[in-house]
Amino acid sequence: MRYYTRRLLHTIFLIFGVSVLSFLFMELAPGEFFDEMRLNPQISPETVVALRHQYGLDKPLAVRYVRWVQSVFKGEFGFSFAYNRPVAPLLMSRARNTLLLTLTATLFAWLIGIPWGVWIAVRKGKWPDHFSTVVVTGLVSVPDLLLALVALLVAMRTGWFPVGGMVSLGSSEWGPAHKVEDVASHLFCPALVLFLGSLPTIIRHARTAMLGVLDSGFVRAAQAHGISSRRLLFRHALPAAAGPLISLVGISVGTLLSASLLVEAIMGWPGIGPLLLEAILARDLYLVVGAVIFSTAFLVAGNLVADALLYRIDPRIRGE
């Protein structure tokens, strides 16, 4: 229990630190949302001053930060100038879409990547291993950006899958089953790109972890006892290799979110990514900070889950 508490405190400290850092950077940033208004001759300078006062931008940094923290506890995460709404509800719906996309892709990547890695670890040095090395190296070298563009091209050319957005026009009047089908068909392309992007890392890690375990004495002992190879692999060896794979869950969240941002922006999936890009171009800084905090929260949550799982599984960590 103490372990969990410590990890949780550490996480809170991290998010707090990131928010302070964002505000410091924001202070250093030249230019703000109202610069465009200042250039507009139809808006009087007094209006801009009044607006800045209304949003509290004329206050010193510390005051703004405290106000922002207050708004976080009210569940608002600051105020978006461009949307003229609190940031949190904007981000919430987008975060749900990002989660849907990334979780689907991750689920399939793990379901396929782990058995694949185990399989080629067993056949080390044979043709499946060599073939997989080629596939993995190839996939690692193709940037997600390009993968997304090619997927877009294929989808447009063949017309098999809809591209852009998350739902079809007029889907709000359809029945629930039809709606799910609609979202799933929109989900396919972006999820496929993310899946292909994260697959090689999982295969490689699964292979390395399995190779380490297959070397150990207990596997050979089990073999000598005549335990069937499938049972040996998936009941004895794989759990022993789970440690590094679980840490991989934590590590890969960051890469996954970054890839997701790219894919979302290119394929028009309404996740956090496109919102962040819009916010940057509009200098809507509270929205930027909000998106950054949300992504941090995702990442540290992933790490937290991975750590908790490791703690459950690996007695060596509990001993420390």
């Binding site: 991290l14 998010i15 630190g17 990131v18 850092l21 964002s22 950077f25 924001m26 250093l28 940033a29 030249p30 230019g31 969240v253 960051g254 890469t255 996954l256 979110l257 970054s258 890839a259 941002l261 790219l262 962040l276 890009l277 916010a279 940057i280 171009l281 200098r283 800084l285 930027v288 900070v289 998106a291 950054v292 992504s295 941090t296 995702f298 990442l299 540290v300």
Partner: peptide
């Protein structure tokens, strides 16, 4: 501790965030 702050952010978000605070 400071480095953990940087590692706690997905790299593309971090990159874009830092870019966001600089002139466009």
């Amino acid at each position: 501790r400071f480095s953990e702050l940087f590692l706690a952010l997905p790299w593309l978000y971090l990159l874009l965030a830092v870019r966001a605070f600089l002139p466009l």
